[in-house]
Design a protein around this nucleic acid. Structure first.
Lengths: 106, 106
DNA sequence: CTAACGTACAACCAAATGGTTGTACGTGCT
DNA sequence: AGCACGTACAACCATTTGGTTGTACGTTAG
């Protein structure tokens, strides 16, 4: 989970994930779009791959990078759990109010 | 957005966020729960505060740390956007199939 | 008033990050 | 066969990160 969020903590990598979720891309195809060296983009893809956010499929002499929505969902689920915890607090306040003034809860 | 995901890329910090989303805690109250120095926990809280995931309210001589669900939602929204992009690809495949074999779609 | 508590912050350290350049290797056009 | 392309990986560098200890300061309890 650390790896997933750390991988998402970089604008270039988030952009790569979004691109390859829409359509698979070669590493050099991706590299063309960013103002950095090919090796730098390659490293970003490696970080994303280690986190499970993308998968590489060798296709001839190039490599197709495709997005992995399942991993994105694992991160989403954790954030939704946080939101659920927050709502618990909110409900407790509701319970408290109900306790202080019972029967006034239409 | 970088700061939000980077802040979430650490198990201790995620745990802190979840605790203070449920109920506000003092920094030293939090520090008791982790096997590290008080200063280390203080740094984690500072990272979370800079990311906007928690807010500190000085209350007497201690500081109440409370979770900030709005920021969690901003991160969730980005991940949901990613999932939406992925579905776009899926829909395109559906469209392709429909084009190849029109009218066979109950 | 004084002592203890909660917090803040600086200095320091090892390890990880994000970038560079350079080299090497397999694949595919011509 | 030979050259260009796409990829991989190592070495290096500056910066950030996650942790430590030590010091200082305001606030509260006795």
């Amino acid at each position: 989970m650390d790896a997933i969020f750390r991988a998402l903590a970089d604008a270039t990598r988030r952009d790569i994930v979004m691109r390859v979720l829409v359509e698979g891309q070669s590493v050099s195809g991706l590299a063309e779009r960013y103002a950095m060296s090919f090796a730098a983009v390659q490293k970003h893809v490696a970080v994303l791959e280690r986190a499970g956010l993308v998968t590489k499929h060798p296709r001839g002499r190039e490599v197709r990078v495709v997005g992995n929505v399942e991993t994105v969902r694992r991160a989403t689920a954790l954030l939704e759990e946080m939101e659920r915890l927050w709502r618990t607090r909110f409900d407790q306040i509701g319970d408290l109010l109900a306790t202080l003034d019972p029967g006034d809860d239409p």
